[in-house]
């Protein structure tokens, strides 16, 4: 592990870098903190751009290639900015047999957006999740952090269109 005498400065003077820096420092500015640091950066900025990846890597002493490898390995991390609103559709088993497929098809029909895509106007991103653990509410979606259970496609589309 290369010994770092000087911690690199944050990429910009955006205050949110403080949060990332603090989280890394609490964990000793060492390579094992990589995933926690990426979580902190994504929480603060919504996604991970090259600046964020390099800053985290340089601070923790992890090569950029490995940071990129970790960021792309885990599906929770996203390297692209998402739309203004996000709609996460659960595709766990319980949701699947209760009609998650129909929800995705309905979103595609009405908003012309497939999973991992954002609508042309940049308003709504559609994502899928492996399982939200909200199986008793199947089919479930999360709209901007709000879990909605027993979803009806028509209502969901209407809600998203009104946003």
């Amino acid at each position: 592990m290369p010994v770092l005498y000087h911690k690199p400065p944050p990429p910009s003077d955006d205050k949110r870098w403080k949060i990332v820096e603090t989280r890394m420092r609490r964990l000793g500015d060492r390579p094992p903190a990589l995933i926690e640091a990426l979580h902190a950066a994504q929480e603060a900025f919504g996604y991970l751009d090259t600046d964020a990846l390099n800053y985290v890597g340089d601070t923790l002493g992890v090569p950029h290639s490995r940071v990129y490898g970790v960021a792309t390995f885990y599906s929770f991390f996203t390297l692209k900015p998402s739309g203004e609103h996000t709609c996460v559709v659960c595709t766990g088993t319980a949701c699947y047999i209760n009609g998650a497929k129909d929800i995705l098809a309905g979103l595609d029909r009405a908003l012309h957006v497939k999973p991992k895509e954002t609508t042309a106007d940049g308003k709504i991103s559609v994502l899928t999740a492996r399982c939200l653990g909200a199986c008793s509410l199947a089919p479930a979606v999360i709209v901007d952090g709000d879990v909605k259970g027993k979803v009806n496609v028509g209502d969901l589309v209407a809600q998203l269109e009104a946003m």
């Binding site: 995933i35 926690e36 490995r66 490898g69 970790v70 885990y74 599906s75 929770f76 991390f77 492996r130």
Partner: peptide, 25 residues
């Protein structure tokens, strides 16, 4: 607490350890 990041394979114990160490799981 260490947070996972959406990789199913990290439930496997050796992959989980790799992830706690901050590496690809």
């Amino acid at each position: 607490v260490r947070l996972g990041a959406g990789a199913f394979v990290c439930g496997e114990e050796t992959a989980l350890i790799a992830s706690v160490e901050g590496r690809r799981g």
